[in-house]
Design a protein around this nucleic acid. Structure first.
Lengths: 397, 397
DNA sequence: GTGAAAGCGCTAACAA
DNA sequence: TTGTTAGCGCTTTCAC
C-alpha cells in the first residue's frame, strides 16, 4: 500500500481521450479496453513532484484515484459491468494515469501467457520465413504474441524448446524439426501444452494426444520434379541433396529414386551428392559433380538454396541453363523467382503448412480446459510443381 | 495448500539423472540448474493414481516431497547454498517430479520477463531477417527470448508495440521503423523500458534518454552506388525508389541526387520512379521507365528486391544486364547473390546493425536499476559497395 | 453493484 | 542453515 499514489497528488494532465487508442490494439479474444489513454494521458505532473512515485500505475493506484475498490477497477477494465458513475471514474483515472495492465500478473493468474513459440531450423531459409509470416498472420489477430527460436537444427536446442514448454512462458509450440529422434518423440509424449509439428512424424509413434502435425509430401514432390525433367528430355539427372539423416533429405532421395525407377532410368549413385541445405554448399556440390562427370544434363536440388548455388556454378563454368543443364529446386521460395533464369521449383506449401499449423494450434488453445481433448490431427499438404525457365527443354532453346 | 501432493503419493519413477539436461539450457545470466531431470524424470506414477494430481509441480510440491520449506527449495534451486543433505533431497525431489520453474511467476516477482521484442516492417525482406538472426545470436546466450513483430510498416502497429512495452511482457524493444512520425517520437519519449531504434532519428528529437539508435548511412551508400555507375561509364541512370515518405526513401533519393550533381550529371526527374520496396513493384516500375525512355543505361534501385524486379523486366524485354543496362541494388541481401548476373549492391550493414542494436540493448538491460542511466548512444554503420557482375562496364562485355 | 480477501508460484527479508 | 511470511499485480469468488 505504501507505493500508492493517494489522493494527495492530483493530476492535471489533459484528461480523458481514453479509448482513442483502443481501436488500434491487436484486440485478441479477451478483454476490451485494456490499454488506456496512452496518447493523451500525459499523467502530466506539470510541476508536481519528481518522477513516478511508486513505479507504473496498478489497479490499486487507479482504485485509490477513483475512490473505488480494486475489484471494481478490474471489473470496469474488463467490461464486466458496473454502475455508470463507477465506470466513468475508473476509466477516467486509468486514462489519466496512462494505465497499461501488467500482462505478467494476468498470466500468472489465469495460467495463459498469450504467447506462442515457433521453433524452426534456420531463419535464413526463406521457406521458414514464410511459415513465420503465416503463423503471425493467424496468431496475431487472435491476440497471441510470437516467440521465435532459430535452432540451427541442433537437436539439443529443439529439445530444450520442447522442455521449456513447461515453464509457462508459452501456451503452445509449433515445432519444425528436420530430424526426429527418439528423444524428440519422448519429449513430445511428455508435452504439457499443445504442440504442432511441421514435419513428418513416424507412423506408429508414441507421441502424446496433444501433438498435431502438418507435413509436406516431399516424396511426391521430388518425384514430380524428376519426372518433369525426364519428360522434358533429360536423362542424366544429378541430385544435390541435403543431409541424408534428415527427414526431408530421406524423403527427397526416395522421390528421386522412385521417379527414375518408374521412368526406367537406372540409378547412378555417382550422380548424387549429399551436403548442407545452403547456397554455398550447392555451388560446391556442383563443382564436384561437374569435375567428375561432363554429361550431366539436369540437376535436381533438394531445395532452392541448393538450386541457386548449382545455377551459379553452372553459369560460372559457362554452361547454359537450361540449354546445357536444366535445374530444378524445391520449396518455391522467393529465391526461385529471383534467379535468372527463374527457377523451376516444387512448391511444398511452406506458407500453407504454416497457416494450417497455426490454425490447428488455435483450435487446441481454444479447447475448454474441462472438455475432452480432440484426437490428434494430422494433415498433409500436396506439392505443386511450378515450371519456370530453368527447366525448359534443351531443344526449345 | 489443497493442491499439494502430500506425503501420501510417493513416486517410484526412475530417480535422478538430474543435471544431465542442465548443460543444454540456454543458460542465461541468472540461476543455475533451474530445469530438472526432464529426461529421466518420468514422475512415473507406474500404477498409482490417475494423472497429475494438482497440475504441474511447484516449489510447494517439492518442499512437501523433500520435507523442507519452500524457501529451502528456492534456495537450493537457485544455488544459494544449503546443507548438503537438503540439497540432495531437494534436487532429488525436483528431478523426480520433472520440475520446471514457472517463469511467469518469477517474472512477476522480479519485474523482468527475460524477453526482448523486435519489431520490423516486413519479415519477408531478407535485410530484416538478417537482423533477426543477429539479434537472436546476441540475446539468446544472454538468456533472453525473442518476441517478433512484423508490423508491415503500419504506423499504428508500431505505436501499439511501443505502447505494449508497458505491459511487462518485454524487457526492451528493438524497433525498426521506416517512417518516424511525431507520434513515434512522443511514444519514444514516454517509453518505460529501453528502446533501441534501428534507423535514423531526427537530430534534435525529444526522445527519451533510454532511446539508443543505430543507423545506416544510406545517403553515402546511395552516393557510392551512383558514383560507381558513373565511373563505369553510365550516364542515364534511372532510380527506382521506395516510398518517398519513408526515411530510407528520402535518404536514398538524396544520395542519388548528390552523386549525380557531384558528377556533373543533370538530374532528370523522369528517370525516377517511386514505388513499394518489393520485387513486383520493381518489375513494374522498370516497365514504366522503359516504355517512356529507351536510352536508360543503368538502374539504381533502393533495395535488392527492387533491383531483382528490375533485372527481371530487363531480361524479359531482351535487354542485357549489364551489357545494355547496369543494375545496382541496396542491402546486399542473399538476393543479390542469388540473381544472375549477381547483383552489385550496397551493403548497409543489416546484420551489423542488428548485432549492434542487440548489444546496446544488452548494455541497457544490464544497467543496475539504481545506477544512473548512461546517456543515449547513437551509432552509424558505414556502407560498403559490393561490386558484382550486374554493373560491369558495358564496354567490357 | 460493490468490497474484502484469497491465491496464482515465486523470491527475499526477517526470525529463529 | 532453515522456516515463516509478505508481496509482485491481477482476477475472482463470496458476502454484503
Amino acid at each position: 500500500m505504501g507505493r500508492n499514489a493517494g489522493p494527495g497528488e492530483r493530476e492535471h494532465g489533459k484528461a480523458g481521450e481514453y479509448g482513442e487508442s483502443g481501436e488500434h490494439r491487436e484486440s485478441g479474444e479477451r478483454g476490451k479496453g485494456r490499454v488506456y489513454g496512452t496518447d493523451g494521458a500525459e499523467a502530466g505532473r506539470g510541476g508536481g513532484a519528481g518522477s513516478r512515485p511508486g513505479g507504473p500505475p496498478t489497479v490499486e493506484t487507479i482504485a485509490a484515484r477513483a475512490g473505488v475498490s480494486i475489484a471494481s477497477v478490474s471489473r470496469v477494465l474488463n467490461g464486466r459491468g458496473a454502475r455508470p458513475g463507477t465506470i466513468t471514474r475508473v476509466e477516467r483515472a486509468a486514462a489519466e494515469l496512462g494505465y497499461v495492465a501488467n500482462a505478467v500478473a494476468r498470466s500468472l493468474k489465469d495460467g495463459r501467457s498469450m504467447q506462442l513459440t515457433f521453433a524452426m531450423p534456420d531463419i535464413g531459409n526463406p521457406a521458414y520465413v514464410s511459415m513465420v509470416r503465416e503463423i503471425q498472420a493467424v496468431m496475431k489477430p487472435a491476440g497471441y504474441r510470437l516467440l521465435l527460436h532459430s535452432t540451427d537444427a541442433v537437436v539439443e536446442d529443439e529439445l530444450a524448446v520442447l522442455r521449456s514448454l513447461a515453464d509457462r512462458t508459452s501456451d503452445g509450440l509449433i515445432l519444425c524439426p528436420i530430424r526426429i529422434t527418439p528423444r524428440h518423440l519422448e519429449a513430445l509424449g511428455r508435452a504439457v501444452r499443445p504442440v504442432v509439428v511441421i514435419g513428418s512424424l513416424p507412423d506408429g509413434a508414441p507421441h502424446g494426444p496433444l501433438v498435431d502435425s502438418v507435413r509436406a509430401d516431399s516424396v511426391t514432390g521430388a518425384e514430380a520434379a524428376v519426372r518433369h525433367l525426364v519428360e522434358t528430355g533429360r536423362r542424366r539427372i544429378a541430385f544435390v541433396n541435403g543431409p541424408a539423416d534428415t527427414v526431408p533429405g530421406r524423403h527427397r532421395a526416395l522421390g528421386y529414386r522412385t521417379a527414375l525407377e518408374s521412368c526406367g532410368i537406372e540409378l547412378d549413385p555417382t550422380l548424387t551428392v549429399t551436403t548442407d541445405f545452403t547456397v554455398e554448399a550447392g555451388a560446391a556440390a556442383l563443382h564436384g559433380l561437374l569435375d567428375a562427370r561432363s554429361d550431366i544434363d539436369a540437376v535436381f536440388c533438394a531445395n532452392d538454396q541448393l538450386a541457386l548455388g548449382s545455377s551459379q556454378t553452372l553459369h560460372t563454368r559457362g554452361l547454359a541453363v537450361p540449354g546445357d543443364v536444366a535445374v530444378v529446386g524445391m520449396d518455391d521460395t522467393l529465391l526461385a523467382r529471383a534467379g535468372w533464369p527463374p527457377l523451376t521449383s516444387v512448391d511444398l506449401g511452406s506458407a500453407e503448412r504454416g497457416r494450417i499449423a497455426a490454425r490447428m494450434m488455435l483450435d487446441r488453445l481454444r479447447e475448454p480446459a474441462d472438455a475432452p481433448r480432440a484426437p490428434a490431427r494430422r494433415e498433409t499438404v500436396m506439392p505443386r510443381l511450378i515450371v519456370r525457365a530453368s527447366s525448359a527443354p534443351a531443344a526449345s532453346i
